[in-house]
């Protein structure tokens, strides 16, 4: 119990004293996680749409893979991304291993299936009658798609929240592909693992409070957006 108090005090102290390293780690975590969620959303929502409204060969396989992928352990994603990014690997030329790009890439791999599967569910929920109505309302294909987006947005926001939650929580992949390099690829979760192994439980606890605060704040914003848009 005392440890928890000390952790809270340490966290407040770290934030108030604007500890440069902690601020840098927090900022980097935000950048990396928001960016990877953004890319996953940009890629995942159209794919979810495609799966709902179009039929094409291999559709069932894509559905299965994206749904199974929601449970893909981050270390597995990390391992594969690492192997691709090795100097001897197919993407070795990019020199991305142990950079933030590698973390973003790994986080996309773990969050994309969530975005695809959950946006598929959201689009699927639009019932047939509404669909026909929307088609009648919109003269062009693009307008139809935009109306679908609007109809499905409640679920889509939930998909974004789930994806973001996943990348914020993820540590195995970021550790493997990023290397937890001080000032370069150290994010909140990897820093916590390191501090625990060094026996600095208070610092780890303090970092965990910062991470949870960020998660809470971001979810709050997204939830507001979801409720606001949905009530229109």
């Amino acid at each position: 119990m005392e440890l928890i108090w000390r952790g809270i005090i340490e966290a407040v102290h770290m934030i108030l004293s604007a500890d440069r390293e902690v601020l840098q780690i927090t900022w980097l975590t935000l950048q990396v996680c928001l960016f990877s969620t953004l890319i996953s959303t940009i890629l995942g929502v159209p794919v979810g749409m495609l799966l709902t409204f179009k039929s094409f060969p291999g559709k069932k396989a894509v559905l299965l893979l994206s749904h199974a992928g929601m449970g893909l352990p981050p270390v597995v994603a990390g391992l594969w991304v690492t192997m691709f990014l090795w100097r001897s690997g197919p993407l070795g030329e990019w020199q991305w291993l142990f950079t933030t790009n590698a973390i973003v890439l790994a986080q996309i791999v773990v969050s994309l299936p969530i975005l695809i599967s959950l946006s598929y569910s959201s689009f699927k929920k639009i019932d047939k009658g509404t669909r026909l109505q929307l088609k009648a309302l919109a003269p062009t294909k693009i307008q139809t798609l935009l109306l679908y987006l609007k109809q499905a947005q409640f679920g889509l926001w939930a998909a974004v929240m789930a994806g973001l939650g996943r990348v914020l929580a993820e540590v195995g992949a970021a550790m493997m592909v990023g290397g937890n390099l001080q000032g370069q690829t150290r994010i909140l979760t990897t820093a916590m693992v390191m501090e625990v192994s060094r026996g600095n439980f208070e610092i780890a606890l303090a970092l965990s409070f910062i991470l949870m605060t960020i998660a809470l704040a971001l979810t709050f914003v997204l939830l507001r957006l979801q409720q606001k848009e949905a009530s229109v």
Binding site: I39, W94, W96, T99, N101
Partner: peptide, 17 residues
Amino acid sequence: SKCMMGMLALTVLAGCA
């Protein structure tokens, strides 16, 4: 083309870094 777009965006990030 979607993949390419993603990669492009990432490359921009890489450039910044």
